[in-house]
């Protein structure tokens, strides 16, 4: 049994007023093994974000099942979902999503505080997580005082601090310059090297080329997948790029 199993996933949105139905995901099946770094690519509107929201238990699927480490997401109720997210998942977003009202340290500690950890252990944990990402000297700063790359690293530290089963990243490099993007991706690779499972949604070929596997999604279904295997970043980049061209020009599989 795989670590994450997504089977026959379907999601239909109904517009509230007109009653029109939009099928966001038609039939999605894939699996992720423990310790994998998987990227999901696709155009806008292809259903990437819907998929991520379902895996994050932020939304409920219309049909199908998502099983993470033996836990069936469709079977847990609304109240437990928040706890599930808090204890099992870590999030990294395009817009960093740090809270302006907290210092970097408090932002990183937020999930732990929500878990009800003892106040006395917290500072040590924050320092540890910050050290991993090289932001120890930023701990007492507020988000408005630091750069985008630093904010994203703080967000990664926040995602890691609970030692989650899986990190979900939604366009993590989308708002970063190329240098910060490279640094962040290096960090992802090194975190992944430590055994952390990562599921990343992205537009960027460069970001995807650092993953160990890339899933392509189109019109609500998994269209294709590529394994990196022993290929170099550059070779894998070329391969992904070719696949994308094929995908958009409508070529055969």
């Amino acid at each position: 049994m795989s670590y994450l199993e997504v089977t026959n996933l379907k999601k239909i949105y109904t517009t509230r007023l007109s009653g029109n139905k939009t099928q966001a995901l038609t039939n999605v099946c894939f699996t992720v093994e423990q310790g994998e770094f998987v990227a999901i690519m696709g155009e806008s509107g292809s259903g990437k974000t819907t998929l991520l929201n379902l895996v994050a238990a932020l939304d409920k699927s219309t049909e199908g099942s998502i099983i993470l480490d033996g836990m069936d997401l469709s079977s847990i109720g609304e109240a437990q979902r928040a706890t599930f997210r808090r204890d099992n998942l870590g999030f990294v977003f395009q817009e960093f999503n740090l809270l302006d009202t907290f210092t970097v340290e408090d932002n990183i500690l937020l999930p732990l505080v929500l878990q009800g950890k003892k106040a006395s252990d917290l500072h040590e944990e924050a320092v540890k997580a910050a050290a991993c990402l090289g932001i120890t000297d930023l701990l007492s700063k507020y988000p408005y005082e630091i750069s985008g790359g630093q904010k994203q690293r703080a967000a990664v530290a926040r995602a890691l601090i609970t030692h989650p089963k899986m990190i979900l990243a939604d366009e993590p490099t989308g708002a970063l310059d190329s240098k910060s993007s490279d640094e962040l991706l290096n960090q992802f690779v090194s975190i992944n090297g430590g055994g952390q499972t990562i599921l990343m949604v992205t537009h960027s070929v460069k970001a995807a080329s650092r993953a160990s596997r890339v899933l392509f999604i189109k019109d609500g279904t998994i269209f294709h997948q590529l394994y990196k295997g022993d290929a170099s970043d550059t070779a894998f980049y070329q391969k992904i790029s070719d696949t994308l061209t094929m995908l958009t020009t409508g070529g055969e599989k």
Partner: peptide
């Protein structure tokens, strides 16, 4: 609005 969206993602329940 945005703030509570983040809090939800991080794992704060509606009740919290």
């Amino acid at each position: 609005y945005g703030k509570y969206q983040i809090l939800r993602n991080v794992g704060m329940s509606r009740k919290d």
